[in-house]
Simulated assay, not measured.
Amino acid sequence: MGFFSFLGRLLFAYIFILSAWQMFNEFGDDGGPAAKEWAPKLHFVKKFVDNRIGNSNLHVDSKTFVAACIFLKGLGGILFVLGSGFGAFLLISCLVLTAPMLYDFYNYDFGEPEFIRLVHEFLQCAAFVGALLFFLGMKNSIPRKKQPQKKAPKPKTA
């Protein structure tokens, strides 16, 4: 059972580790193609926040955002393979931060091919979050092995 649990975690985390590795290899001086894709989306989020709470000094550089994604995916994936709940938390954080911005199906009309593709990808990320939450729930529900208690020495009678 332990081997299959490890294999399942390895195959699941492979998605995130491979993605982080690819982003790292393409990073370069300008952040790579991922930074170019994130720049307009982060600008839209900045405008949205400015409209909701007023003129703020919120500024997220796309290159920094991509570096944070690489860190969350890479470290989270490796820790998840090792069975760490913190690794699952890092992967959940990455998915919750990126999925609503990356798969913005809400900007398209229902029935468009782009809408269907984006909803599919967004729901896949939601399923990943659900699987990670399930992992955290199962990890916390399994009782820890009890340490054997030392037997109290019997009192000697005279």
Rank of each mutant, 00 (worst) to 15 (best):
D61M: 06
G54F: 07
C69H: 11
K63S: 12
K150V: 13
C69F: 08
P113I: 03
V119C: 11
I78C: 12
K156W: 00
N107A: 15
K36I: 02
H59P: 00
A68Q: 05
M1R: 12
F110M: 12
A126L: 14
C94M: 14
N140R: 14
S141V: 00
S56D: 10
S141Q: 08
M138N: 14
V66W: 00
F12S: 05
S5W: 01
E37A: 15
A35T: 01
A34V: 08
T98Q: 09
G83Y: 00
S84N: 10
P143V: 06
I70W: 05
V129F: 07
P143Q: 09
F135D: 07
I15H: 13
R52M: 14
L10W: 07
N55T: 14
I70K: 06
C125Q: 15
T64A: 13
P100R: 08
A20N: 03
G87A: 07
R9Y: 03
G8S: 08
K146D: 13
V81S: 05
T98R: 00
L118R: 09
F122Y: 15
L10A: 13
L133K: 07
K41D: 03
D50Q: 09
G137C: 09
F115P: 00
F105Y: 14
G76A: 00
D109N: 14
N25C: 12
F4E: 07
G54W: 03
P155I: 15
T98A: 12
V129Q: 04
K151S: 14
E26L: 12
G83L: 01
L72K: 08
V60P: 06
M101A: 12
R52C: 13
G77W: 01
G85P: 02
N107Y: 12
L58E: 07
L133T: 11
V49E: 10
E114Y: 02
Q147F: 06
T157H: 10
P40M: 00
L11E: 01
D61N: 15
A39W: 00
V81D: 03
C69I: 08
G83K: 01
L102C: 02
P143C: 07
P100G: 06
I53L: 10
F65I: 04
L11Q: 02
Y14T: 05
S84Y: 06
V119S: 07
F115N: 12
S93E: 07
K154I: 11
C69Y: 08
L18I: 11
V96I: 14
N25S: 15
F3G: 04
G87H: 02
Q22C: 04
G111T: 04
I53V: 12
S56W: 06
Q22F: 08
F4P: 05
T157A: 11
E112R: 09
G74M: 08
A152P: 04
M138P: 01
L97G: 04
I142T: 15
P113L: 03
F65H: 05
D104G: 09
G31W: 01
F105W: 11
G87M: 05
L75D: 04
L72E: 04
H43M: 07
K73C: 06
L123I: 09
